[in-house]
Design a protein around this nucleic acid. Structure first.
Length: 671
RNA sequence: GCUGGCGUAGCUCAAUCGGUAGAGCACCUGCCUUGUAAGCAGGGGGUUAGGGGUUCAAGUCCCCUUGCCAGCUCCA
């Protein structure tokens, strides 16, 4: 017999009012929905969990749409889902975009609805009833949504409020019991968005908002948003003189000396690990005959993202031939004749004009190296690393600081191995990856296994092997993972590694991807123990991903306060007066002699001003030297990370201390 | 690429209705000789993103180009 969830879980709910629904299997039901289940089969869903939050936010989206339609009659609703950090709702508002004042009014109206604790109700209707209901309201977008619901599936409406106050939306649910649960709500921003995400469709007005279980959670979230604004890597990049951009090379970063230092330190760190994990590094060209990318499949599949450079020689020749072609027209008075000759000349030269291409990826280079001579099974797995510069043409609207650029480099490597070696190689890669993430301070890592998409190449047996090897490797390291069905590349499945930064934002950095296709396209072979030719499998892998993007994440993660091991300046000596200048330089020399990075501020500023500038640059240690320190040959350090002054100590002792912090951390238990 | 917005000194920002381009910081010079988050004074710095138009007069209004920002879409 079916009973409302509220009745079945009555005991639990009376003890814990944050229960807003219950899970039966994988489906979340709201409290008023009747289900047939024993209390033990129902798992309570609380607002404190991600699932519960999603319900809460989706309910908030309904209340916002209700408020909007009360304040702006004639505005049509479309869709309003929960997102990772809140929710949005898209409206068709004839009078144009919402303003900030509008948002304040809407928020006010939402609060009224929340205070009235209007209950959410669910009703199931027929397709015809649903159409009739929304047609009456003039909600033309809902028609499309109703039509998109598959035959045989329940069509449900959600209502909150009663009588004249009732507001109804087409919705699968579930929802919180009543609007009173929505007490920590904030509208964040407005944006344009296309109906169904398609730029050929009308532009809608989207309002982003967020909602939390408690006001304290909301405050914390808003604090993180503020903090994220302060830490924006584009702002810090300028302030800390890490990198710059210039209109002459849009979306291609220039790393300034301080930024380049950090960049190279990261590369150096990866190199040091490669040595330990059995990688070899190669250096490969930038520009290739386009035939390479026809072989690799990039030109057919990736052409719109590629830079196709042309040499001046080719260009001049084409221009010259064009001119000759035009002059050679038999009848200069006939446009048609001249046009024909010109068009033929143009077409004839187009191939030449794109005879070369900048590489967008390194993998084809490594395939060329692999097949440049015979390979034995004895030299597999062959792990080949490349910090080559890559160029991809990204569309104008998508570039963003260092996070999305057109010129970048990856901590890229490819592993060529026998299919049987895959799993071991993936395991070793996972070890390497976790060591790196620990060193740069990312403690929380989520693993996703992206499996075969509908359109794919390769045999099912290959896909089975590849997916199994990836899953087994993760499991062998005692890690959990989530499956993203159908999200793999068309040529193979992959693992994605997502980290959470200091502001609780998630970024995908690392990946390892199985590829049978490229070895096929390049006809790669190795000689097995049986003397016969075998085809290797190729693993594409990166840990930091693109160095540029990683810098963006890392700058925001650290707030520009790089750890001692990779900070461009580890210590700066500030003098109390110019009487200590000589000693300050001596301190710098002593630090540099041990491979440490130090500068002295001997400007005519007062001590307070010098300390302020050094702090703004996030220098890990500020060494104050006055007469007392000169006399005793000591330094008085101020620690950035402890945010306090340390006891003065002899120069030599400080050097030792700094040396102890100057190497990247290593995973315990490794050599 | 699409929608909307923005572009004024190295940075952050002013400039009324279309009417003399300005401030703070930074930089340079000098003074000050300093004890834990901004010492004082003076100076240099601008084809107002670029180009075109309207006007007696354009940073301001219109058009084009370019770059950037927010979002959408994209990220085999």
């Amino acid at each position: 017999m079916k009973r409302p969830v509220r009745e079945i879980l009555a005991d639990a709910i009376s003890r814990d009012p944050s229960i807003i629904g219950a899970k039966l299997g994988a489906v979340v039901y709201d409290l008023h929905t009747p289900v047939e289940a024993e209390p033990s089969a129902l798992e309570p869903v609380r607002t404190s969990t991600p699932e519960g939050l999603a319900v809460l936010r989706h309910s908030t989206a309904h209340v916002m749409a209700d408020a909007v339609q009360r304040l702006f009659p004639g505005t049509k609703v479309t869709i309003g889902p929960a997102t990772a950090h809140g929710f949005y709702y898209d409206f068709d508002k004839p009078s144009g975009p919402f303003t900030d004042e509008d948002l304040a009014h809407i928020e006010q109206k939402m609060l009224e609805i929340v205070e009235q604790k209007r209950p959410f109700r669910r009703t199931v209707v027929s397709r015809a009833e649903a159409h009739a209901h929304f047609q009456k309201l003039g909600e033309s977008y809902k028609r499309e949504l109703i039509d998109a619901i598959p035959e045989g599936e329940e069509i449900s409406l959600y209502h909150h409020g009663e009588g004249a106050d009732e507001w109804t939306d087409l919705c699968m649910g579930p929802h919180v019991p009543h609007t009173g649960y929505l007490r920590a709500v904030k509208l964040v921003s407005v944006a344009g968005a296309y109906w169904r995400g398609d730029e050929r469709n009308p532009m809608l007005q989207r309002i982003y908002g967020t909602a939390f279980a408690t006001p304290a959670d909301l405050r914390e979230h808003l604090r993180l948003l503020e903090e994220a604004k302060k830490r924006d890597h584009r702002k810090l990049g300028r302030e800390l003189e890490l990198f710059m951009f210039d209109e002459h090379a849009p979306a291609m970063p220039f790393f300034l000396p301080r930024g380049a230092f950090v960049y190279n330190r990261l590369v150096g760190y990866m190199r040091s690990l490669y040595e330990r994990y059995g990688y070899e590094e190669v250096v490969t060209p930038q520009i290739f005959d386009k035939k390479l990318f026809e072989t690799s499949g990039h030109l057919p599949n990736y052409r719109e993202n590629m830079f196709l450079p042309v040499t001046a020689e080719l260009l001049d020749k084409a221009k010259m031939d064009l001119r000759l072609g035009l002059h050679g027209a038999t009848d200069p008075h006939s446009y048609r004749e001249a046009d024909k000759v010109r068009d033929e000349a143009v077409i004839g030269h187009l191939d030449d004009l794109e005879r070369t291409a900048q590489k967008p990826m390194n993998c084809p280079c490594h395939c060329l190296i692999f097949r440049s001579r015979r390979r034995s099974y004895r030299e597999l797995p062959w792990r080949v690393a490349d910090f080559g510069r890559l160029h991809r043409y990204e569309r104008g609207g998508v570039v963003h600081g260092l996070a999305r650029v057109r010129s970048f480099c990856q901590d890229d490597a490819h592993i060529f191995c026998a299919p049987a070696e895959m799993q071991t190689e993936i395991q070793s890669f996972i070890d390497l990856l976790y060591e790196v993430y620990a060193a740069v301070g990312f403690a929380k890592v989520d693993v996703k296994l992206a499996t075969r998409p509908d359109t794919r190449i390769g045999t099912d047996a290959q896909w089975d092997d590849a997916e199994r090897a990836l899953a087994a490797a993760v499991e062998s390291r005692g890690l959990g993972y989530e499956v993203s069905p159908g999200e793999g590349a068309f040529y193979g499945p992959k693992l994605e590694f997502h980290i959470e930064d200091a502001l609780k934002r998630s970024w995908q950095l690392g990946t390892i991807q199985v590829d049978y296709a490229l070895p096929d396209r390049f006809g790669l072979e190795f000689t097995g123990p049986d003397g016969a030719a075998h085809r290797p499998v190729m693993l594409h892998r990166a840990i930091l991903g693109s160095l540029e993007r990683f810098m963006a994440v890392y700058i925001e993660h650290t707030g520009g306060a790089f750890p001692v091991w990779c900070a461009p300046e580890q210590a700066t000596v500030v003098t109390v007066s110019e009487k200590q200048d000589e000693y300050a330089h001596e301190v710098v020399r002593a630090l540099k002699a041990r491979g440490l990075r130090a500068t002295a501020d001997t400007s005519s500023d007062k001590l307070g001003a010098k300390i302020r500038s050094a702090r703004l640059l996030r220098v890990p240690y500020i060494l104050v030297v006055g007469d007392k320190e000169v006399e005793a040959r000591m330094v008085a350090p101020r620690s950035r990370d402890l945010d306090k002054n340390l006891d003065p100590l002899p120069l030599a002792a400080f050097v030792e201390r700094l040396l102890g912090e100057a190497e990247p951390p290593r995973l315990a238990g490794r050599t």
